[in-house]
Write a protein that binds this DNA or RNA. Structure first.
Length: 1002
RNA sequence: GCUGAAGUGGUGGAAUUGGUAGACACGUUGGACUUAAAAUCCAAUGUCCGUUUAGGACGUACGGGUUCAAGUCCCGUCUUCAGUACCA
C-alpha cells in the first residue's frame, strides 16, 4: 500500500477541513480489507496472543447496540496487543446452526441454510461498519459441512474412547477390548454405566458380537441410553425444562409427558473432578468459577448399604454425614426408585401406588418449586441398621430425587431439616444423637460444632473423627465405603431437530456403527418439511436419501435399505453446543490448510489456547463447561496440547434499553342540547406527573387537566357529566427514535406511527411533550432497540466505539442513552482540531514543552494500566483530559501528537489512521509500537498539600516535595489560615504524611 | 434459602495501597456568536444555611465500630441484580 493516495487525504476530503467521519471510516475499512492488515500469521518471531469473542448466532433481527460491546472491548485489546509487539489472532465467525432458522423454515418453508446465509450477510455488513480488526480469512460457520465434518470426527473419537479412572484420562476403546479378552473386566476401573456386570475373559469370548457391542457402549464416552425426557406429542418434540410452564408447553400450551427415549449422551461426569480442579488454573471471575463449581456439585461422604428384611435386594444410599448413622430412624426412597414395587407390602400397596401415580403427574420443576408441602407413603417394608440391626421403616417421598445419588436416603431427622420435617409430619421418632443440642424445634445441621452422642462406638467423637471411624467400620462389614458424589449429570446429545449436525452413525440390528472418518462429512439431507414425522420421528425421518451403503461408502436412497449392505442412518442431530465446543481450535488453522485436520499440529502448537475470551455470562454452565470437557478429552487422546481452552475470561455486562412512554386518556364530549357526540374517544396525552398522581388516587385531577385543555367555547357548552373519560388511563411505548436527547417527542412522527394515535393531542409543557423513561432489557417489543447502523451514520463508528466503552465498566449492566453520545463525538471533533485547522495540518516539529510531555506521559501510564485492567471507560476519560489539556497548551509538536494517536487508535482506529497518515506515515498505525512511558516527565517538585483539621480538609498549601516532615509542620503551623482555624487552641497531635496530607487534631 | 456482584449528585459513572468525595461526560441554567436555528465557545451546577465578599453545616443504602483520617477496613441490617435450588 502506498502512502501517496492518503497523504493529503484531509485536503481532498473536504473544503472545510472538518471531521468527515463517514468518508474517513469507509476509506480505512476498505484499506484494512484490501491490505489484509489484520491477517494473523502462523509463523512469526513475535509472541502470540489469541483474543476471542463468543461467536454470534446470526439471528434475523440483526445487531443492536448491545451486541458489539464485547467485540469492541476485545478489539481494543487485540489492537493494543499488536502495538505491544504481539502476533495477534483475533478471528470471528458464526454459530450458525440453531432453532430460530428452523422455526422460520417450519413457518415459511424457506431452507434454514438460505435464512442463515442472509442473516450472516447482514451481520457481516454491520460488523464491518464498526471497524473491527478481525482476521476474516479464518472465519468459521458451524453449519458448513467443511466445519461440521470435524464435529462429526470428534464425535467418533469420543465413541472410540473410554475413561480410565486409574490413569485419570480417556483411552482408546481398543485397549479395553484387549483387557477383556485376557482377563475380563474385573480389574477395570473406568467410568461406565451403573449396570455393568462382572465377566471373565471366557465370558467375553462367549458373548455374541452384539452382546460385546452392548457392553462396550456402557464404557464409551458417548453412548446410547434410555433417557427420560419431556415429550410433547402435539409438537412431536422434546422440550427443555424452561420450555414447560405449568405442565404444558410454553409454545401452544400442549400437554407434556415424561417419556423414555433412546438418545446419545456424553459421559461428561467422568471428567467432573478434572473440570473442578482445572478451575484453579484459569483466570476467570470468581462468580463464574463458583457457578461451575455449584454445577459440578462435588460432595464427599459415604455409600452405605442397607439390607432389607425378608428381601434379597439391598438399598444403597449416599450420605455426606455417615457419622450420624445412629440417628437414622427411617429410610426414604424416591417414588421412581426401582425397588418400590418389589418391597411394598400388600397392606400398603394401594397407598403407595396412588402416591407414585400422583407424583408422576407432576413435572420435576413443579416438584422442586413446591418445597413446603410434605408428602410421602410408607411401604410397609423395613431395612436393617448395619450396626444395631434394628428394623428401619422404609418410606417413599418426593423430596428424594431419583436423579441424584442413588435415589434413596438414610433419613436422620435430628441432623437434616427435610428429614426432620418429614418425620414430624408422619410422626416418626426423632432420636437425638448430638450432645447438648436442643432439637425440639428444628434439626441441627452444623457438623463442626458438636459431639456425637448415643452412638455406640462413635459416642464422644467430633464429626471428622466419627466419619473416619464409621467408614472404616462399614468397610469392615462390607456395608459401605467412602464415596464422592457429583451433581453433574451426563449430557444428552441428541436433538429431534433438522438444523444441526447429523451424526456419522448408522444402525445394524439396532446397534450403532460409526462411519469411517475418511467418508466424512455426512451432509445434512434435504427434506420437504422441517417438522417431525407423523410417527413422531425427528425431521430427518422425512429424508428420502438417508441410508448408508457400506459398499459404496455413501449416503443412498432409503429404498435401498436391505440391512445387509445398506442400513438406516441416525435421525437425530447434534445439539447447539456441539459446534461451539471446539471452534476456537478451528480458527488457529488458516483456511488453506483446513482439509486434512481440524487444525494442523503446528497451528495448535503455535496458538495453544485462547488468551482472552470475552462473552456473556449466560454460558457459564453450558458452552463454557462443555468446551472445557471436549478440550480435556482431545488433550487426553493427543489431538491438542492444552488442558483448558480459555486462559482468561471476561463477561461483558448487558446493555439495557431506555424505553420511552407516553401517558394518555381517551375522552368524549356530548353536546348538552342536541345530545350529539361532538368528540368521540379522542386520545389526549398528559404528563407523567399527572398520570402518576391519578394512579395514586387523585382522579379529580385528570378531569381538571382535560378540561383545562379543551377549548373555552366548547367547554362552556358542556357540563361535567358530558365529558366522558375512558378509564383506566393508559401508557404506551413510544419508539425511542421519535424522542430526542431531552426526552422531547417528535409528535408528528409519533402520530404517523399507529392509526389509533393519528389524531392524538398533547398537553405541552413549554411547547413540548416530554416522555417518561424506564430502563429495561433491549427488545423489539419494547420499542427501545437502538441500531448501530443509525449511530454509525449519524456519529460514526469511532463515536460508537468510544461511547460503548465510556458508558461504564465492561462487566457491569448499564443503560444505553443515545443522548450521551454527543460527549464522545464532541471529543473526536476536538481531537481533530488539535491536528487540523482551517489551513490544514497544524502539527509541526516544534519542541515539546514540559507540560506537553507531562500530559502525554500521564496519559500513556493511565491508558496502559486501564487496558491491562479492562477498565476501558476510564481511559476514554483520560483521552478527553489529555486532549483538553493539549488544546489549552496549544500543543503542535509531532513528538507529542504522534504517540497520542497510537494511544487512541485501539479505541478510535479510523480517525487515528487518518491523522496518522496525514502526519506523513506510510504504514497503518496498527504497525506502530505503543509509546513507552517515562516516569521522569511526571516528577514533581512540589505538592498541593490538603491541610485538614480533625480529618476535614480546610485549605490547600503548595509545598516543595523534598521538604522535611518537621519543616512541613512548622510551615503549616505558621500559616495564617491555620491560626485562624485553631482560634487559639493548641493542637493535640499533628499528622504529617509527606507527599500526601497534613492533619491537625485538636 | 444458598452463592456471587452491587448500592456514590437530576443521569452514566470516577476516586489503584485508608489520605482533598463527585474526575470525565450527559442533562439543566445563564451568557457570547447568529435575522433565526444548528454548530461552536465561555461560565455555573451535590444538598442546605449565609452572602457584597467570606464562610459554615450535612453528604457515598441504613445502624454501629476501628483510625489522626473510612466510599474504601470490621460487625450487623436493608435493598437491587445475576446464578442456583428439596443435592441427602
Amino acid at each position: 500500500m502506498c502512502c501517496n493516495t492518503f497523504k493529503f487525504a484531509v485536503l481532498i476530503s473536504g473544503k472545510t477541513m472538518s471531521y468527515h467521519f463517514n468518508e474517513i471510516e469507509a476509506k480505512w475499512q476498505k484499506y484494512w480489507a484490501d491490505n489484509q492488515t489484520f491477517k494473523a500469521e502462523n509463523n512469526s518471531h513475535k509472541p502470540k496472543y489469541y483474543v476471542l469473542d463468543m461467536f454470534p448466532y446470526p439471528s434475523g433481527a440483526g445487531l443492536h447496540v448491545g451486541h458489539p460491546l464485547g467485540y469492541i472491548a476485545s478489539d481494543i485489546y487485540a489492537r493494543y496487543k499488536r502495538h505491544k509487539g504481539f502476533n495477534v489472532l483475533h478471528p470471528q465467525g458464526y454459530d450458525s446452526f440453531g432453532l430460530p432458522a428452523e422455526q422460520y423454515a417450519i413457518q415459511t418453508g424457506q431452507h434454514p441454510a438460505i435464512t442463515t446465509e442472509t442473516n450472516i450477510k447482514t451481520y457481516r455488513r454491520q460488523l464491518d461498519q464498526i471497524g473491527f480488526s478481525f482476521d476474516w480469512s479464518r472465519e468459521v460457520r458451524t453449519s458448513n459441512p467443511d466445519y461440521y465434518k470435524w464435529t462429526q470426527w470428534i464425535f467418533i473419537q469420543l465413541f472410540e474412547s473410554y475413561y480410565c479412572n486409574d490413569a485419570n484420562e480417556a483411552r482408546p476403546i481398543s485397549e479395553l477390548t484387549s483387557v477383556f479378552e485376557i482377563e475380563g473386566n474385573s480389574s477395570i476401573n473406568a467410568a461406565c454405566d451403573d449396570d455393568v456386570v462382572l465377566f471373565s475373559s471366557e465370558d467375553w469370548k462367549d458373548f455374541s458380537t452384539e452382546e460385546q457391542q452392548d457392553i462396550l457402549l456402557k464404557y464409551r464416552l458417548t453412548y446410547l441410553a434410555e433417557t427420560e425426557v419431556n415429550w410433547c406429542p402435539a409438537l412431536g418434540t422434546v422440550l427443555a425444562n424452561d420450555e414447560i410452564v405449568n405442565g404444558v408447553s410454553e409454545r401452544g400450551g400442549h400437554p407434556v409427558v415424561r417419556k423414555k427415549m433412546t438418545q446419545w449422551s456424553m459421559r461428561i461426569s467422568a471428567y467432573a473432578e478434572r473440570l473442578l480442579q482445572g478451575l484453579d488454573t484459569i483466570d476467570w471471575t470468581d462468580s463464574l468459577k463458583e457457578s461451575q463449581r455449584n454445577w459440578i456439585g462435588k460432595s464427599v461422604g459415604a455409600a452405605v448399604t442397607f439390607n432389607i428384611n425378608d428381601h434379597d435386594e439391598v438399598i444403597e444410599v449416599f450420605t455426606t454425614r455417615p457419622d450420624t448413622i445412629f440417628g437414622v430412624s427411617f429410610m426414604t426412597l424416591a417414588p421412581e426408585h426401582e425397588l418400590v414395587t418389589k418391597i411394598t407390602t400388600e397392606a400398603q400397596r394401594g397407598t403407595v401406588q396412588a402416591y407414585v401415580e400422583a407424583t408422576a403427574k407432576r413435572s420435576e420443576r413443579d416438584r422442586m418449586a413446591d418445597v413446603k408441602t410434605i408428602s410421602g407413603a410408607f411401604t410397609g417394608a423395613y431395612a436393617e441398621h448395619p450396626f444395631t440391626k434394628e428394623p428401619i421403616p422404609i418410606w417413599i417421598g418426593d423430596y428424594v430425587l431419583a436423579g441424584y445419588g442413588t435415589g434413596a436416603v438414610m433419613s436422620v431427622p435430628c441432623g437434616d431439616q427435610r428429614d426432620y420435617d418429614f418425620a414430624k409430619h408422619f410422626k416418626i421418632p426423632i432420636p437425638n444423637i448430638f450432645d447438648g443440642v436442643d432439637i425440639s424445634e428444628e434439626a441441627f445441621a452444623d457438623k463442626d460444632k458438636t459431639v456425637i452422642a448415643n452412638s455406640d462406638f462413635l459416642t464422644g467423637m467430633n464429626y471428622k473423627k466419627a466419619t473416619k471411624r464409621v467408614i472404616y467400620e462399614l468397610e469392615r462389614l462390607g456395608q459401605g465405603k467412602g464415596k464422592t458424589n457429583y451433581r453433574l449429570r451426563d449430557a444428552v446429545f441428541s436433538r429431534q431437530r433438522y438444523w444441526g449436525e447429523p451424526f456419522p452413525v448408522y444402525y445394524v440390528n439396532s446397534k450403532p456403527q460409526m462411519i469411517d472418518q475418511q467418508h466424512l462429512p455426512i451432509v445434512l439431507p434435504e427434506v420437504e418439511k422441517y417438522l417431525p414425522t407423523e410417527e413422531g420421528e425427528p425431521p430427518l425421518g422425512r429424508a428420502d436419501v438417508w441410508a448408508w451403503c457400506t459398499e459404496s461408502n455413501s449416503v443412498v436412497s432409503n429404498d435401498k435399505i436391505n440391512h445387509t449392505t445398506v442400513f438406516p442412518l441416525e435421525l437425530n442431530t447434534m445439539p447447539g453446543w456441539a459446534g461451539s465446543s471446539w471452534y476456537f481450535f478451528r480458527y488457529m488453522e488458516e483456511a488453506a490448510h483446513r482439509d486434512d485436520a481440524f487444525a494442523t499440529e503446528d497451528a495448535l502448537k503455535y496458538w495453544e489456547n485462547v488468551d482472552l475470551y470475552i462473552g456473556g455470562s449466560e454460558h457459564a454452565t453450558g458452552h463454557l463447561l462443555y468446551a472445557r470437557f471436549w478440550v480435556k478429552f482431545l488433550k487426553d487422546r493427543g489431538f491438542v496440547g492444552v488442558d483448558e481452552p480459555f486462559k482468561k475470561l471476561i463477561n461483558q455486562g448487558m446493555i439495557l434499553g431506555t424505553s420511552a412512554f407516553g401517558y394518555f386518556v381517551f375522552y368524549s364530549i356530548i353536546d348538552r342540547a342536541t345530545k350529539n357526540v361532538i368528540l368521540n374517544k379522542k386520545p389526549l396525552f398528559i404528563s407523567k406527573e399527572d398520570y402518576n398522581q391519578t394512579l395514586t388516587g387523585n382522579e379529580e385531577l385528570i378531569i381538571d387537566v382535560v378540561k383545562s385543555y379543551i377549548d373555552k367555547n366548547l367547554l362552556s357548552k358542556i357540563e361535567k357529566e358530558e365529558l366522558h373519560l375512558m378509564t383506566p388511563m393508559s401508557s404506551t411505548y413510544i419508539p425511542v427514535e421519535y424522542v430526542n436527547a431531552s426526552d422531547e417527542l417528535d409528535i408528528e412522527a409519533f402520530k404517523n406511527w399507529r392509526p389509533e394515535f393519528k389524531d392524538a393531542e398533547f398537553i405541552l409543557e413549554d411547547g413540548v411533550y416530554k416522555v417518561g423513561r424506564e430502563v429495561e432489557k433491549m427488545s423489539k417489543s419494547k420499542y427501545n432497540v437502538v441500531n448501530p447502523d443509525a449511530i454509525c451514520d449519524q456519529y460514526g463508528a469511532d463515536s460508537l466505539r468510544l461511547y460503548e466503552m465510556f458508558l461504564g465498566p465492561l462487566e457491569q449492566a448499564k443503560p444505553w442513552n443515545t443522548a450521551g453520545i454527543t460527549g464522545v463525538h464532541g471529543f473526536l471533533k476536538k481531537l481533530w482540531k488539535l491536528y487540523v485547522d482551517d489551513n490544514g495540518i497544524r502539527v509541526n516539529d516544534a519542541e515539546a514543552s514540559k507540560d506537553n510531555l507531562k500530559t502525554l506521559h500521564k496519559t500513556i501510564k493511565k491508558v496502559e494500566e486501564d487496558i491491562e485492567n479492562f477498565s476501558f471507560n476510564t481511559s476514554v476519560s483520560t483521552f478527553m483530559i489529555a486532549v483538553n489539556e493539549l488544546t489549552q497548551q496549544k500543543c503542535t509538536s509531532t513528538s507529542i501528537l504522534e504517540p497520542l494517536l497510537i494511544l487512541i487508535s485501539p479505541y478510535a482506529p479510523h480517525i487515528a489512521e487518518e491523522l496518522w497518515s496525514c502526519l506523513g506515515n506510510n504504514e497503518s498505525i496498527s504497525t506502530a509500537s505503543f509509546p513507552i512511558f517515562e516516569a521522569k516527565h511526571l516528577v514533581e517538585s512540589s505538592k498541593n498539600y490538603p491541610i485538614s483539621f480533625n480529618g476535614k480538609m480546610r485549605f490547600t498549601l503548595e509545598l516543595p516535595l523534598d521538604m522535611s516532615k518537621d519543616d512541613i509542620e512548622k510551615t503549616v503551623m505558621a500559616h495564617e489560615k491555620t491560626i485562624a482555624q485553631l482560634e487559639g487552641r493548641t493542637p493535640k497531635k499533628i499528622i504529617v504524611v509527606p507527599g500526601k496530607i497534613v492533619n491537625i487534631v485538636g
